[in-house]
């Protein structure tokens, strides 16, 4: 009887134990935990440098600023302001991301002083000519994928879960993604993307993670390599700030118009 009680205690204390869960349940649990550890950040601001490289190694650079507002129960609101190249300076991009439905997106065109609604259905299209698709940079909500834990596999010496996630949206450019998730911190270390024909398309690696407010992990640098074209894109993040006091009023069409 005491043995049975002990067994029950062990069972309740180890929700991650594999024998009680299907790989799907375990995969989902990892995704939920990743999301939980990153919630309640409120808002954040950062500076972003994007370096585009073609297969000959030629580079092109873009500089932008990012403002993100966490929306409880839905996807985040994001405002991106472009600083460089100079011909797009002052252009600003506002998006309200949603868990399942298409995102709402607006673009401010400074030369025309106009806010323009844009269609967001093309999730697999390139973000600013880079190797990042729009769906790669938009807020990663648990509901956007179905999950399956494959195995535990170390990545560059770090203990990690290897999970597969399949996009729910039929407009996604991917059949599936393989994600290596750090076991200690529940942050992504590497993602492999497979195109609609299920051939490897891109790999994304996360470098130089920093922890902010003793909780939120952000990579200083991410590298996306297109395996099919040889092109690559580096994103360098600087000046992260959290809980800066941004609110809904900083993410509407008026604030889009005066963003610069």
């Amino acid at each position: 009887m005491t043995r049975f009680a002990l067994f029950l205690v062990i069972l309740t204390l180890s929700p991650l134990s594999a024998f009680s869960q299907s790989p799907e349940e375990k995969g989902l649990e990892i995704a939920v935990e990743m999301n939980r550890r990153d919630d309640a950040f409120g808002d954040s601001t950062s500076n972003l440098e994007m370096i585009l490289r073609n297969k000959h190694g030629e580079e092109s650079k873009r500089v932008m600023r990012n403002r993100t507002l966490e929306v409880v129960g839905d996807g985040d609101k994001t405002l991106v302001i472009f600083d460089n190249p100079r011909d797009v300076k002052g252009t600003a991009f506002l998006s309200f991301t949603h868990k399942i439905e298409n995102d709402d997106q607006w673009l401010f065109l400074p030369a025309l002083k106009r806010v323009k609604r844009i269609s967001s259905s093309n999730k697999s299209g390139s973000f600013m000519g880079s190797e990042f698709a729009y769906e790669d940079i938009t807020s990663q909500e648990v509901e956007k994928y179905t999950y399956r834990w494959l195995k535990d596999e170390a990545y560059e010496g770090k203990a990690a879960f290897l999970i597969e996630r399949d996009p729910v949206d039929p407009n996604s450019g991917y059949t599936r993604q393989l994600v290596w998730v750090d076991k200690a911190e529940y942050i992504p270390l590497k993602i492999e993307y497979f195109d609609r024909k299920n051939t490897p398309l891109k790999t994304l690696t996360f470098h130089d993670y920093q922890q902010y407010l003793e909780r939120y992990w952000r990579a200083d640098r991410t590298e996306m390599v297109n395996l099919q074209t040889g092109k690559s894109t580096t994103l360098k993040w600087q000046g992260y700030q959290f809980k800066t006091g941004l609110s809904d009023k900083d993410f509407n069409k008026n604030s889009l118009k005066r963003a610069r």
Binding site: L52, N54, E58, E59, S60, P85, V88, L107, I118, S119, N122, G125, S126, F127, M128, G129, S130, Y134
Partner: peptide, 13 residues
């Protein structure tokens, strides 16, 4: 009709 996102293509320098 927008077949691709509005954003610009890279200019190689």
């Amino acid at each position: 009709y927008t077949p691709l996102p509005v954003f610009l293509k890279p200019k190689w320098t």
